[in-house]
């Protein structure tokens, strides 16, 4: 976890998203503005959490960054280069540096392939091993890394539990030694007790290999735990962006407040006295132009020029309380 006020200037930007828009069926009647003008940066070595309700555009954001989709407009820079301009011959290298971990432990592994072939898929594509023996050795190494045993290598995915499958997916992503990993709800399909295993694993390898994460989730307590900074997404736009503690302890945007008030906690007394805050989305749909404004250093909120003062006052109040 990080200190309250990140100093972006000192840190290297690994991913930079600028005014990204991603529309599906653009121009047709069933047009969906899955992402509608979002901008943010992810610094090297950090975990950037992205939360929001279903359909808010989280997965689309992740998939645009990894070039599964071609953006409608806007730019995505990875390590200083615009990913839409990567030449065919450099594409393979890009595919090595950025990897993805998927949500559904049942859909993310090919049911007809053995675990070792699943994990070695990247090794084969990028010719990272010279022969079968080396391949097996590397697969075993990766199995060790994610805490699975070597004799799992010759088994098929359906023989594993959800948590084990998720670890196989992680091993597959790690095989190509990426620098940046997009984890799209990697734990939401898992049991509570298994979630912790996977989260710990992700943190351990992050430390070990100096990885940068984009961690997508709708479970806010887990995101808070794993992320350094968090962006809150709604209807394809970012509502609020700040350090994890700021977002949780000092939320400014009404949507964030509403979202936080809905998080169930394993505490009956708190639950009995919980007051959910409603959210009136007129603040998004009144037609006024809004963009992310820095309210206090490092804390951004989607606002008009006029609203900034109000948010600043609210932020100040929080800090007086502390």
């Amino acid at each position: 976890m990080m200190q309250n006020n990140p100093q972006p200037q000192e840190r290297k930007k690994l991913v930079e998203v600028k005014h990204l828009k991603q529309y599906f069926n653009a121009g047709r009647r069933n047009e969906v503005k899955a992402i509608d003008d979002i901008s943010f940066e992810i610094y090297e070595g950090e975990t950037f959490g992205l939360v929001g309700e279903s359909g808010s555009g989280k997965s689309t954001t992740g998939r645009s960054i990894i070039r599964l989709y071609t953006p409608t407009s806007g730019e995505i820079e990875f390590n200083g280069t615009d990913i839409s301009k990567i030449k065919h011959k450099d594409m393979l290298q890009f595919r090595r540096e950025m990897q993805m971990i998927f949500q559904d432990p049942y859909a993310s592994l090919n049911p007809r392939m053995k675990v070792k072939d699943i994990i070695a898929e990247g090794l084969d594509i990028h010719h990272l091993v010279k022969n079968e023996a080396e391949r097996d050795a590397r697969v075993n190494e990766l199995l060790d890394l994610v805490g699975l045993s070597h004799d799992h290598a010759t088994r098929y995915p359906h023989e594993f539990s959800g948590g084990q499958r998720q670890r196989i997916g992680i091993a597959r992503a790690l095989a190509v030694e990426p620098r940046f990993i997009i984890a799209d709800e990697p734990i939401s399909a898992l049991d509570v007790s298994i979630q912790a295993q996977v989260v710990n694993l992700l943190r351990d390898i992050q430390k070990e290999q100096n990885l940068t994460y984009l961690f997508i989730a709708h479970d806010l307590s887990m995101v808070k735990y794993i992320s350094d900074r968090i962006a809150v997404m709604h209807n394809g736009r970012l509502m609020e962006l700040s350090s994890a503690d700021e977002v949780y302890n000092h939320p400014l945007h009404p949507y964030t407040k509403s979202l936080l008030s809905a998080v169930p906690l394993p505490d009956p007394f708190y639950e009995r006295n919980r007051h959910r805050k409603g959210y009136d989305d007129r603040i998004e749909t009144d037609g006024q132009l809004r963009s992310l404004k820095e309210i206090v250093p490092g804390h951004f909120v989607l606002a008009t020029e006029e609203e900034v003062a109000g948010y600043q006052a609210a932020a100040e109040e929080y800090h007086l309380d502390d």
């Binding site: 912790a196 989260v199 943190r203 949780y248 394993p266």
Partner: peptide
Amino acid sequence: FYNPQHPYTWGLLNSMPTLDTDSDRLYAIP
């Protein structure tokens, strides 16, 4: 929730991060 007795219940409750969990690792039932 407040006075669990079985180690499995302990593990379940323990593996959930609360908003003030700050430790480096979560407890995971192995």
